[in-house]
């Protein structure tokens, strides 16, 4: 299947990727080739049963919603420390509405 520049940019936008014009030209034939190849599954008739997206034989694995309290600073440190955008007790991110 063929993809034009607009369609690829649309996909990139959905995926939050930015492609330069050079990259677009490099990826376009590769993506077209892959989509052509995988398109062969269209020729296969649907199965009689309804497929599920999981391989697991489990269904609806649940656990009770328990509040566990991890004392003091440790929990906060543990979850904030991997972030490079930490600002005290918060993560400071660029504005979503900023224009």
């Amino acid at each position: 299947m063929s993809l034009n520049a607009e369609e690829i940019q649309h996909i990139a936008r959905l995926a939050r990727l930015k492609l330069s014009d050079a990259e677009l030209e490099r990826y376009r034939p590769q993506l077209e080739g892959i989509l052509d190849y995988v398109g062969q599954i269209q020729q296969v008739a649907d199965s009689a049963k309804t497929p599920s997206s999981s391989l697991s034989i489990n269904t609806n694995v649940t656990r009770t919603d328990e509040v566990t309290c991890i004392p003091g600073e440790t929990a906060r440190e543990k979850f904030l420390s991997p972030s490079a955008m930490r600002d005290g007790e918060f993560l400071k991110v660029p504005g979503v509405f900023e224009t």
Partner: peptide, 18 residues
């Protein structure tokens, strides 16, 4: 920014991921 009208957060995502 490439597109000055774009939100800074979206631009952030695009740059990080690209």
């Amino acid at each position: 920014r490439d597109d000055p009208r774009q939100s800074a957060l979206i631009e952030w995502y695009e740059q990080q991921r690209s």
